[in-house]
């Protein structure tokens, strides 16, 4: 696998959300607005890249029996960094993401990449993989948040798209929990259809 593939794979082909269905917790919970989705995507990408970097760097040093706790310690270090930085410089975003920042520690995507990729690969491919997966995650978050924010609030990234009259009576369910599941189901269904078409199965 070439370096370019290491990078590009996570964006569409092996998208962590749409194809691997990992990281559902932040995907369902903080995609209520595009701003939150971008913030969460950036935070997770940051942690992912650096944890992949360190895990890959220490892959020959960490004994295999204690590798998971070691990964968690590495990941938690960067999550704490992000948490404190965000609290200092982006307090509003930090407020709205709330508990989901510390929860990045147990994000399946990050642990999954550490265990499934960085653990077995050299540093450069691991970092590229982290960037690609992080971008794929952010992209998925933004796609989901686009549907939810436009339907549920009539706006996109805070810009009023559908007008005052819509905002007074929006499709509130889209930014509530059930709406997240419904929209996710439709997005995943769409990707499944695309996949089938590509394989020349059901038309």
């Amino acid at each position: 696998m070439s370096l370019a593939q290491n990078f590009s794979r996570g964006i569409v082909k092996d998208n962590p959300i749409f194809k691997q269905v990992l990281g559902m917790c932040p995907f369902l919970a903080v995609t209520t607005s595009v701003e939150n989705a971008l913030g969460m995507g950036a935070a997770a990408t940051f942690v992912l890249v650096f944890s992949n970097f360190l895990v890959s760097l220490f892959r020959k040093v960490i004994p295999s029996k204690v590798r998971i706790p070691s990964y968690i310690v590495i990941i938690a270090t960067f999550v704490t960094l992000v948490d404190l930085l965000m609290n200092a410089y982006l307090p509003a975003l930090h407020q709205s993401l709330g508990i989901f920042i510390p929860l990045i520690v147990v994000n399946c995507i990050i642990l999954g990449r550490a265990e499934g990729f960085a653990n077995k690969n050299k540093v450069l491919p691991s970092v590229l993989d982290g960037i690609g997966m992080g971008l794929g995650f952010t992209l998925a978050m933004v796609v989901m948040a686009t549907f939810r924010e436009i339907l549920g609030n009539g706006s996109w990234l805070g810009f009023n798209l559908l007008g005052e009259s819509y905002q007074n009576q929006p499709l509130l369910i889209a930014i509530l929990a059930p709406g997240a599941f419904i929209i996710m189901a439709f997005i995943l269904g769409f990707f499944n259809i695309m996949e089938k078409r590509k394989r020349g199965g059901v038309k």
Partner: peptide
């Protein structure tokens, strides 16, 4: 249920 969740006031 969808309507009640979406338009609680109405």
């Amino acid at each position: 249920a969808f309507l009640v969740a979406s338009f609680p006031v109405l």
